Computed example of a mutant assay.
Amino acid sequence: MPNIHELHDERKQLLLQCISGSRAYGLQTPQSDTDYKGIFVAPKKVFYGSHFTDQVANETNDIVYFEWKKFIDLLGKNNPTILELLATPDDCVLYKHPLIAGLRTEDFLSKLCCQTFAGYAQSQIKKARGLNKKISNPVEPERKVIPDFCYVIDGMQVVPLMQWLSDRNFKDTDCGLVKIPHMRDAYALFHNSQLENGFVKGVYSGADANDVLLSSIPKGIQPLSLMSFNKDAYSIHCKEYAQYWEWIEKRNENRYQSTVSHGKNYDAKNMMHTFRLLHMAEEIAREGKIFVRRSDREFLMNIREGKFEYEDLLVRAEEKVQLIEELFEKSKLPEDPDLEKLEELLVRVRDEYYLL
């Protein structure tokens, strides 16, 4: 199988090589990297053998090549990346094999694009909401523990367990719980001082615990109080804590600083590409064409520079999605790409390439 160097630098087995991403869209900035995408044909021996690979990329995934079969498969699904690759502006096409010189995106567009373009854009809106939440609601470095979600009846009021313990100079390790039947996450609360023989297990086993501990308490001993454990809230906290600090660990620091620098607390680059996809979906529905090089560059760059309010962009995006769905309903595009035509193309190009 050709490696990334053989494909990208030596153009072995290559059908197409293009500059992709922001430079193809015309949305690059002085800090933008140069991305590349292309198509290759696996050597005949590899294709029929056991070491076939349908995609080759470098470590950072800014250089990606799709094997011919995967390209055709994704084309049949109206995958945006593949359609954009096929519609790359001429000034970004570095190499094109004569076998695919006549391929046009217009021949493969269908109403599937409503889902693949606008649907994907909607997923990015959801992603933007999640990021906005992370930026606007940072999570403290120390994860909360089970007692932070426990509450105790104290006279005629309910107080946090930790306050109740502090008022009595108790430790949670010296307390024991017994489940109260027929009441969800409700427990009778005892203290070690009430027991002549035996001992309680404590409220919980430690920071990694998923639930409270239960103790064996002799009959006849009255509980000091009743306690409830908000288990649902604790589970949500643990999940959000893990997600937040995983995001902190893996986030692109330069992109994050760019996100917060404009003070709007959303990923402006992500939102820019969301609207690019929405506008492209509208163009496909109206004109039956894909325009990779963006004529709406000024508007998209204004989004990237944080010149819009986050909520305003969400309203605009939702309105645009509704419009796109209506346009595709009325569109004369086929429901799906012609899969038989794609199958013939797959076989013909491979056969002719192997004969060269």
Rank of each mutant, 00 (worst) to 15 (best):
N61Q: 15
C92N: 15
F66T: 01
N3L: 13
V347E: 14
L313C: 02
T116H: 09
K269F: 02
Q17K: 15
V178I: 12
A188T: 00
G206Y: 09
Y310T: 09
F149P: 00
V315L: 10
G38T: 12
F170C: 06
N169I: 04
A285S: 11
T88R: 06
R348S: 15
E344P: 00
N270E: 10
E335F: 04
L224T: 02
T274L: 10
L314T: 01
H51F: 13
I221K: 05
H97K: 12
Q257C: 06
T53N: 11
E84I: 07
N79R: 03
F229S: 00
R348P: 04
F229K: 00
D54C: 08
L278T: 06
Y244M: 07
I248Y: 02
F47R: 11
S110V: 06
R304E: 13
K289S: 14
D73I: 05
L342M: 10
V158C: 00
K69G: 04
Q157S: 11
W164A: 00
D35S: 13
E10A: 13
N79D: 12
I180C: 03
Y151S: 01
L278K: 03
V315G: 01
F71R: 01
A186F: 07
D9E: 15
P160G: 01
Q122T: 10
A233D: 12
C238L: 12
N137V: 02
E340C: 06
E10W: 08
L333W: 07
D174V: 03
A57W: 04
L103I: 12
P337W: 06
F47M: 12
Y95E: 15
A101M: 10
K341Y: 11
H237D: 13
N230H: 08
V64H: 07
P43T: 14
K44R: 14
M156C: 03
L14D: 05
Q194D: 05
R184S: 13
N265V: 07
P147M: 02
